[in-house]
C-alpha cells in the first residue's frame, strides 16, 4: 500500500499529463473543474491514468457519479433533492459535500471534486482491494 505522499505524487503526475497544468497548480485544495480546468472529457482521460498508475479498475461513475445529475428523480428546480444528496453522499464518501449541501445547485456540482478528494478516493479503493 503506497503512502499518502506517494498517492498524491502519482495523482499529481496524472493531472499534469491529462490537463496540461503545472506541477505547483496541483494542490490538495485545488478543484478539478474550477482550478485545474478539467472538462467532462478529461475525466475519461484522468480515470484511465489513475487506473494505470495504481493498477486498479475504476468503473464509470464511481469517481464522479454523473448519472445522479441527469436523474429527474433526484433533481428539483435545478437543485439536488435530499434524496439526491443522500445518494451523492453514499456514492462519494471520499468527498466533502457539506458546503455544497447548503445550496445544492446542480450546476455547481461539477466543481466539487478536489485533488484531496481524489487522493481519498484512491486510498479507499486501494485499502479495500488490499
Amino acid at each position: 500500500m503506497p503512502t499518502q505522499e506517494e498517492i498524491f505524487e502519482k495523482i499529481r503526475v496524472a493531472l499534469v499529463d491529462a490537463l496540461g497544468v503545472d506541477d505547483d497548480e496541483v494542490t490538495p485544495e485545488a478543484t478539478l473543474v474550477g482550478d485545474l480546468g478539467a472538462e467532462s472529457i478529461d475525466f475519461l482521460d484522468i480515470v484511465f491514468r489513475l487506473e494505470k498508475a495504481f493498477d486498479m479498475s475504476i468503473p464509470r461513475g464511481e469517481l464522479f457519479p454523473e448519472d445522479i445529475l441527469t436523474n429527474a428523480e433526484y433533481i428539483k428546480d435545478g437543485k439536488l433533492t435530499e434524496a439526491g444528496l443522500d445518494e451523492v453522499r453514499k456514492r462519494m464518501p471520499f468527498a466533502d459535500l457539506e458546503e455544497f449541501a447548503k445550496n445544492p445547485v446542480v450546476g455547481d456540482f461539477g466543481n466539487l471534486l478536489t485533488v484531496a478528494d481524489m487522493c481519498r478516493f484512491v486510498e479507499t479503493k486501494l485499502s479495500s482491494a488490499g
Binding site: D17, A18, G20, I41, D42, L44, D45
Partner: peptide
Amino acid sequence: AEKVILAKVSQ
C-alpha cells in the same frame, strides 16, 4: 458500432 470522435489532444 460507435461514433468515434477526436475529443482531446492531451499532448
